[in-house]
C-alpha cells in the first residue's frame, strides 16, 4: 500500500488502510501508540498496574497487621515497658504470631520499597541518580527482608 499521495501531512505510514477512503472521507487520525512495523512484539507488560494494585491490597492487610502490632507492643499490658527478650520469646513460641510478623515484614517492606521507588522516580531527575538510588533501595530492601525472615525462622529462646 503506497503512502505517497493519500498521506496527509503529519500522518505517518502506519499499518492499516489508506488515509482517505470512500467510507472514511475525513482525515484519518492515528490512534495513540499505534503499532508499526518497528514496534517490538512484546511490550513491557503491566508492572505499574500490578504495583498500583499491590499497594492497595497490601495496604488493607497492613492496616490490620500494623495497628494490631502497635496495640500489642505499645498500648496493652504496660505498653513498651514490658518488651524484652522474654516477651519476644513468649510471642514467637506461637506459630500464629510468627506468621503475623513474617507477613507484616514482607508486606510492609515491599509496600515501603514500592512507595520509595515512586518517590525516587518523581524527584530524582537524572537517570544516573535514579539508577543509584534505586540500586541502594533494592539492596537495602532485599537485605532487610532476608534478615528479618531469617531471624523469625531461626529464633532460639534458649540462645544461651
Amino acid at each position: 500500500m503506497s503512502t505517497s499521495e493519500k498521506t496527509a501531512a503529519g500522518v505517518g505510514p502506519v499499518e492499516g488502510g489508506a488515509v482517505y477512503t470512500v467510507d472514511n472521507p475525513a482525515p484519518f487520525i492515528e490512534a495513540p501508540r499505534q503499532r508499526t512495523r518497528k514496534t517490538p512484539k512484546s511490550t513491557r507488560g503491566n508492572f505499574e498496574l500490578a504495583a498500583w494494585l499491590f499497594m492497595r491490597l497490601s495496604g488493607v492487610v497492613l492496616v490490620v497487621l500494623v495497628l494490631g502490632h502497635l496495640l500489642i507492643q505499645l498500648v496493652l499490658d504496660g505498653g513498651v515497658s514490658k518488651i524484652g527478650f522474654a516477651f519476644v520469646a513468649g510471642r514467637w513460641a506461637s506459630p500464629f504470631w510468627q506468621v503475623w510478623d513474617l507477613l507484616m515484614l514482607w508486606l510492609a517492606m515491599l509496600h515501603g520499597a514500592n512507595g520509595l521507588r515512586t518517590v525516587i522516580n518523581d524527584y530524582a531527575e537524572r537517570a544516573n541518580t535514579r539508577l543509584w538510588l534505586k540500586g541502594l533501595l533494592y539492596t537495602a530492601t532485599v537485605f532487610t527482608i532476608l534478615l528479618g525472615t531469617l531471624v523469625i525462622f531461626t529464633f532460639d529462646p534458649n540462645i544461651r
Binding site: 520469646a89 518517590v119 529464633f155
Partner: peptide
C-alpha cells in the same frame, strides 16, 4: 508521602534492632 518515607526508615531500624534477639538476650534488652 512524608509519613510513608518516615515509617519506611523506621522499619529498617526496627528490623535491625529486632535482629539482635539472634545475638543475645542482653544485646536485645
Amino acid at each position: 508521602r512524608v509519613t510513608g518515607v518516615l515509617i519506611f526508615f523506621f522499619l529498617f531500624v526496627h528490623v535491625l534492632d529486632t535482629a539482635l534477639v539472634r545475638v543475645s538476650p542482653e544485646a536485645y534488652d
